[in-house]
Amino acid sequence: MIGPALFFSACLFAIGVMGVLTRRNALILFMCVELMLNAVNLSFVALSKLHGVGGQVFVIFVMTVAAAEAAVGLAIVIAVFRHFRTVDLGALRLLRG
């Protein structure tokens, strides 16, 4: 059971990475990062079947941290929208050089 679970989590992680690298919308990028974090959570849960409860504890921490990141991240996205009227990364061009 562990093999397929790890493979599935690696696929999800790869989808997240591809999303971050190809998309330009800040919100979609953020959702892709969340997908990556949850892919890792899946790995932890699968591996804790081998190594005991440590992996499951880690998942709780990761979910808490992801929630804190989401709170800060969405606030930043709103701040950017107020200034630029868009959350498209291609439109953010104040910092160049």
Partner: peptide
């Protein structure tokens, strides 16, 4: 605006 842009880039 520069701060907001930097913050978003750093965050992502």
């Amino acid at each position: 605006g520069r701060g907001a842009e930097a913050s978003l880039k750093y965050f992502l």
